[in-house]
Design a protein around this nucleic acid. Structure first.
Lengths: 168, 168
DNA sequence: CAAAGAAAGTAAATATATTGACATAAATTG
DNA sequence: CAATTTATGTCAATATATTTACTTTCTTTG
C-alpha cells in the first residue's frame, strides 16, 4: 500500500518531466533548425511550409486552410509566413478558378530549386546530427509515441474534428 | 543489395516524419496548453517559467541567465515574459546583493498561490488528457528518447557546452 | 432569385522567440 | 590600481503564432 502510493505519487513527476522535455526539444528544434538554414534565410516554419508544398498531393496547389490544417497552425499565422515566402519568390499565390475566395499556394521554380539543391542536403545532415544514436527501431518507436500524443492533442482541441466516426 | 538500398532509402522518410510529428506536437502543445490555462491568462511559456520557479533549487531566487539556460530559451526572450509576469504580480525581480548586475527572479505569494491553487489542478488534468493511453513504461521510454534527442541538439548548438569532459 | 448564413483569406492586437546592439558592473591583466 | 575583457540584463528589429474582427465570395433558404 505504501509502495503503491509512492508509485502513484511518481506519475505527475513523470508527466511533468515528459512535457518539459518536449518543451525543451521544441525550443531546440526551432533554434538549431533555423540556425542550420540561416545561410539561406529560412526559418523552421518556412521550412515546414516549403516541405509541405513538395508533397505530391500539394504540388498542383493547396488552399491556405488545408495547409494550415496539415501543419497544425492557424490560418492567420500562415498568412504572414506565406507573404514572406512570396516576397522571396519561393512560392506563388494564385486564385482558385473554382472558388474565387480561395488562393492556391504553390512552389515556384526558384522555390523548388532552393528545396532540392540547397535545403535538402542541409536538412539531411541536420537529421543525422539530431538523431545520432537512434536506431531505425528507436525512430519508429518515437514516431509511434508522437503520433499517439498528437491524436490526444487533437481530441483536446475543439476545433479539430478527428473524424472518429467517419471512416477515413 | 536491392533490399538494402530500399531500406536505406526509407531512412530520410522516417527522420522526416519524426521531426514533422515533433513540429506538430510542439504546435499543439502550445495551442492546447495555452487554451487550458486561458482562464488565468497564462501562456505555455509563462507556465514553464512559473513551473521552474517552484523548483526547490530556484526558490531562493534565480538569475535570468540561469533560468534561460534551464528552459533552453534566450535571455532576451525571457526579459519580455518576466516583465509581463511581474506586471501581473506573479514574480518579482530583486538585485543580487553579491552581484549588482544580476537580478534574482522569485515567485511572489500571489504567484505561488496561482500555481498551487489554480494552475496545478488544470495542468494535472491536461497531462492526463495528453498522455491518455500511455503506460508508465511508455512515458519512461518517451522521456528517454526526448532526453537523447535533447543531448544531440545541445551538441549541435555551439552556445551550449554539454560538459562532456567535466564530470557532473 | 434575394437575404441570411457560412467559408476563405487577411489585417490588427498581443505574446513569444531569435539575433544584434548596448549599458552597467564585475573580473582579469599589465 | 587603471585598462581591457567579460558577464548580466535589457532594448530594438524581425519572424512566428494566437484570437478577434473584417472583407469578399459562395452557399443555403425562403
Amino acid at each position: 500500500m505504501q509502495n503503491g502510493e509512492k508509485t502513484k505519487d511518481q506519475a505527475p513527476r513523470l508527466s511533468n518531466r515528459l512535457f518539459f522535455r518536449l518543451y525543451q526539444c521544441a525550443n531546440m528544434l526551432h533554434k538549431t533548425g533555423t540556425r542550420a538554414l540561416d545561410a539561406h534565410h529560412i526559418t523552421t516554419q518556412q521550412w515546414a511550409v516549403l516541405g509541405a508544398l513538395t508533397r505530391p498531393a500539394f504540388e498542383p496547389g493547396v488552399a491556405v486552410g488545408d495547409l494550415a490544417a496539415f501543419l497544425l497552425v492557424s490560418r492567420q499565422n500562415l498568412t504572414g509566413v506565406l507573404t514572406r515566402l512570396e516576397a522571396m519568390d519561393y512560392i506563388e499565390r494564385t486564385v482558385d478558378e473554382n472558388d474565387n475566395r480561395s488562393r492556391l499556394i504553390r512552389l515556384t521554380t526558384k522555390g523548388r530549386s532552393l528545396w532540392d539543391e540547397d535545403m535538402r542536403p542541409v536538412i539531411s545532415d541536420f537529421y543525422d546530427d539530431a538523431l545520432r544514436g537512434f536506431s531505425t527501431e528507436d525512430r519508429i518507436h518515437m514516431i509511434h509515441y508522437l503520433d499517439k500524443m498528437l491524436r490526444n492533442f487533437k481530441d483536446i482541441d475543439p476545433e479539430i474534428q478527428t473524424d472518429k466516426k467517419a471512416a477515413e
